[in-house]
Design a protein around this nucleic acid. Structure first.
Lengths: 328, 328
DNA sequence: ACCCCCTGGGAGATCGATTTCCGACATGCT
DNA sequence: AGCATGTCGGAAATCGATCTCCCAGGGGGT
């Protein structure tokens, strides 16, 4: 009933623990092919599975990478975790995913839990640009951490993100190209993405442009935004949403209030998640090069510490046009 | 730079490792309050974090529970994982979430990875009622496993699920109550949930009732279903979907084909996920008592092995009526 | 005054793997 | 033949915590 240990395999194969380890862990030196076969066979027969804790204790590595996202309720973060999972799996590792429930305290707790020997390195999508920094800085001293999709002030480590400024540029240019000039922005105010999108938008449209700032990226927030947009309907003919979930909430509420999309108001999302295709109309958005970002992130995570000096690396977005911004 | 160990704390506090451990691990016996304070202080000052692998190796427990879901792309499974996370956290543990990418091979691999010393116990939402069984049976011999939301044949362990038969009953009764008698069912054919919902539906409606079986629970499958429903539009005035994501794909496609919902066809979902409220019309669904199920599941996971004998425990569903089934 | 019991600290064994170090043996070269 | 070199198996140390076992000292009972 109790799990077989390395020594059981070794005895069954008639060799020492050292030899069995050399065969099964693969590393180290050559062993006689004949002995190797006997060990493999014994391991197979006994159903041997190396004890992960013992191996991790001895080698100091777990073969596991973690990722902490603000919330899995936002499908974009699921997609993001998936992209990282593929890269990690391709590299022969395992990924564990944690959810910070949009709360910096839970985020800090999750970081601590994962870092105390459960993972070799960590991707973090910080909940807040301001409040997440200190916990991350402490953690980054202990193990490699790479920020992903968002950065945090004073994090002390590198961030791999989208080039938000050019993404906003693409969207605004596209909207102006179809004749919309009274563009409003809906974004959150806590995340670095929100802040960068707001900054780029204000830069492009001037300080008088309509902006609606909400506490978080949720569909509920999107509905709230819709109500405010409706109040000032004649001053707005297009809305750039800082996240797809916002756009979904917004479009569904506009629809119920009989505001035509894109007839009266054109709408764009941000992140290009699956659900956008399901809405009526399907929503224009911006796609992140998640695979490339994940690959780069993993490289940085495994690189020597000095390559993770605090800075932001930005990846180019891609515009995906759909019916929510078709010409009328 | 290198992390402080227990022995460092002990030396700083002027006590032995044993005493330091007794204070910090909390278990075992009393220690002199004065010494305890000194140890706590030293640990605090050095920023001591116990090495998780070492502790797990010695105690044989990790304080971590795992859950493997078919895919995180389905928001219902995210909600489910969340409910489990809350129970686990309330019990002082940590949850790790894995995604099987709807593939029994990846599922088996994830089970193996997690069970080789990373978790004390595992919740599995099996991908397939037939194909997932053997891997789970093997795994359940090594550590406690509880199936959740779905069961698998020959799994050798207990399953905590919804009472699918009465859920289908609630939906069918409700639809008949608003005068719909030509009801169709859309479900998948691989999962136990799909199978049970199909069986209950056939039992209630007779073998001639329209049923559409799809390979999986996705919005794309929902669109395919919509096309088939449209082909036989005059034989159908209501559709029971075996999952919310199916309903979402179905309604959005019906909408595009100018089929009125609920005017011509009433639609119900299954799982009561958030997104249902966003659609036009909002969709009637069935809510799972996820908290109660998670609590029961955790109890079973921590109980002695004999309490996890193979069987299915069913929890009562709750009908949530929305506009997609309003009377016309 | 003596002994026993109880409390609580410390030395060392232990969990299960990997890895260093040593020695045995075979091989090749002069 | 003799010695240097290389290959490979095994004994034992090691990772960092917990836990068993022993022992010292204080308090209470007779």
């Amino acid at each position: 009933m109790t799990a077989p240990r390395l020594i059981d395999v070794a005895e069954a194969a008639g060799v020492s623990r050292a030899t069995a380890s050399r065969v099964l862990a693969g590393t180290q030196r050559n062993v006689d092919p004949d002995l190797a076969r006997r060990v493999e066979e014994a391991a197979q027969r006994l159903g041997y599975q190396p004890n992960h804790s013992a191996r991790a204790l001895r080698t100091g590595a777990t073969g596991t990478i973690g990722v902490i996202v603000p919330t899995l309720a936002n499908p974009y973060f699921v997609q993001l975790a998936d992209a990282i999972a593929q890269q990690v799996r391709a590299a022969g590792g395992t990924l564990v995913v944690s959810d910070a429930a949009n709360d910096t305290a839970i985020e800090a707790e999750q970081i601590d839990t994962l870092l105390s020997g459960r993972v070799d390195g960590l991707f973090v999508v910080p909940v807040s640009a301001d409040a997440s920094g200190p916990a991350i800085r402490d953690a980054a001293r202990r193990r490699p951490i790479v920020l992903f999709d968002r950065w945090a002030k004073g994090s002390g480590t590198v961030a791999v993100t989208l080039d938000n400024a050019s993404a906003v540029g693409l969207l605004v240019d596209h909207l102006e190209g179809i004749g919309r000039h009274r563009i409003a922005l809906v974004a959150d105010q806590a995340s670095s993405s929100g802040a960068e999108r707001l900054a780029a938008f204000t830069e492009a449209q001037g300080p008088d442009a309509t902006t609606i700032l909400l506490p978080d990226f949720t569909t509920d927030a999107g509905r709230t935004a819709a109500r405010r947009i409706i109040e000032q309907r004649d001053r707005v003919d297009a809305v750039v949403c800082g996240a797809d979930v916002l756009a979904v909430g917004l479009v569904s509420t506009l629809h119920r209030s009989r505001v035509a999309v894109p007839g009266q108001i054109a709408v764009t999302g941000f992140d290009d998640t699956e659900m956008l295709k399901l809405l009526d109309p399907p929503i224009t958005s911006v796609r992140h090069p998640l695979s490339a970002m994940a690959e780069r992130g993993l490289t940085l995570l495994q690189a020597p510490g000095r390559e993770r000096a605090e800075r932001v690396e930005r990846f180019p977005p891609q515009l995906v046009v759909r019916a929510s911004t078709s010409e009328t």
